[in-house]
Write a protein that binds this DNA or RNA. Sequence first.
DNA 1: AAGTAGCTAAACATCA
DNA 2: CTGATGTTTAGCTACT
Length: 685
Amino acid sequence: MMVESASETIRSAPSGQNGVGSISGQTDGGGGGGGGAGAAGTGGSGPGRDSAAGPDSNGEMSPAELLHFQQQQALQVARQFLLQQASGLSSPGNNDSKQSASSVQVPVSVAMMSPQMLTPQQMQQILSPPQLQALLQQQQALMLQQLQEYYKKQQEQLHLQLLTQQQAGKQQPKEALGNKQLAFQQQLLQMQQLQQQHLLNLQRQGLVSLQPGQASGPLQTLPQAAVCPTDLPQLWKGEGAPGQPAEDSVKQEGLDLTGSATTATSFAAPPKVSPSLSHHTLPNGQPTVLTPRRDSSSHEETPGSHPLYGHGECKWPGCETLCEDLGQFIKHLNTEHALDDRSTAQCRVQMQVVQQLEIQLAKESERLQAMMAHLHMRPSEPKPFNQPLNPVPSSSSFSKVTVSAADSFPDGLVHPPTSAAAPVTPLRPPGLSSASLHSGGPTRRRSSDKFCSPISSELAQNHEFYKNADVRPPFTYASLIRQAILETPDRQLTLNEIYNWFTRMFAYFRRNTATWKNAVRHNLSLHKCFVRVENVKGAVWTVDEREYQKRRPPKMTGSPTLVKNMISGLSYGALNASYQAALAESSFPLLNSPGMLNPGSASSLLPLSHEDVGAPVEPLPSNGSSSPPRLSPPQYSHQVQVKEEPAEAEEDRRPGPPLGPPNPSTAGPPEDRDLEEELPGEELS
DNA sequence: AAGTAGCTAAACATCA
DNA sequence: CTGATGTTTAGCTACT
């Protein structure tokens, strides 16, 4: 689905003005590179990852060595993680400069880039909200697990040090020992607090709220996702006792974590190689059992690069020591940045930096969502002219169904989420289908055709929007032409009048006149539903409703396509496109330029609505079965879109007179005649 | 994969 | 001749 929506988006913007990158490229890049559900995008940068996963039996180590390696590994994980986080969050500038000069427009080519090359902003622009969310969650899940690892190792190490200190302390002055112990305990406490804070943070962002039992979705391969947030602090607390052997505490944790993880996520319990054996989720999302011993070394020995090593110098915070080569750097790393208080503190600081960045990101995301929600919701707010224009009365008049759609979408189809969860709602007039808003380029499947939503009602509700916003209306030319014609009292228009209607009703058609006028003429000629009638005042165009209905039996209701469309409508790509389009056109003073709408629009509109109300002018989907609510897709507002159902049914069977009572549009005298004339020739083609 | 629908572009014809 | 109006064809994309 993402792929499709993405491709649609991308193709719909031929001018490349806002080429929203192919999401498929993104997901593929991440998934392919990582080979797994998800975290690949974030974790891929860790150079030593691959080798870390490989089995390496380096089993002849002394317990002390083993422990050291465990610590090293934990630190390594933490370092890499922090680096990834930090670089991922704070390096947009670099990437930007590399990728494009324009920060607003995302060249299509970006889509081809690997996820690692993408800045968060670009990711946001490219990815659909669900994708973003998934990515974020995966990232957070990975982060959480690594944090757990890190915390665990830190605890372990602290305990160990504590123990050794205690033992050594027997020969030391009691005072010194007390200080040391105090320091350790403080550190321990700090770590606990930090972890709790972090977990809280994650929880805020929704990650940890994942239900352990709800093992479905990309995250389920990530064991940590199933760890109950509240368990962790307890875990830590439980082992906080200084006197407890580190080994024991580790074992407990391991068991706990393993237990929760495996039970909740169908993540096969790995063979326990050692008490401190830990689960790691590799960037590719594949859980891996790491044997602590060789990991650290393999990390460091990864040929080529090290996350903390770049441009010949150590990237450790505050350290810019020059190192000739990687070997030297690693040596430096192991000596200067070994696991000690200082390094731990620095690590902690870095963690906080990352955390701040995450918070910042969360805030920005929230703001973005609010913005989008606002932009989306506003138009749907009851407008003054909405009520009068509403087709509801009419519908109720001849439709028994009056689904009080006022607040519900009876069809149960995908409705634009109003929650913050997927609030990404493209900027578009309330009644618009998603795909259509790209202000440039051909947009297929205008909503009127796609969803058979009454163009009249949508227009009535959003006409001001269209009138002032240079946004392409989501209707086909044919439906627009028809609407224009039907709006007139005698249901006929000259070509020029049609032109005028277009320009009057839609800001979008105030430019590129050659193009759309040509299209209008083309449509008039092409579609049999448009009948040219010689009139006293020249040639006028009328609508053959039956032909129009015949055009294409829409069997949309509940169709996957519909759902897909609506979903794609929520995609960030669409949002991005329309948002950019709207902003670019700076047409946003819409809705409040009284001067613009006065002239003829209001006058022309009102009649329309009346007529509309009286009769479902819009083609009624001719399928009684699928009938129900062909909600005007984006009509989050509370409009009954169902009115036409009965008419539909009638239309469907098409008993006798083309347009029954419900269709006064054809009742009009002039084209009625035309219609009749046209009837014979109406061949099913 | 084939068919259909829609959009755009363009060529061409007709007529005032 | 010019511009407006119609007609037709072709290419493309999206969708079924």
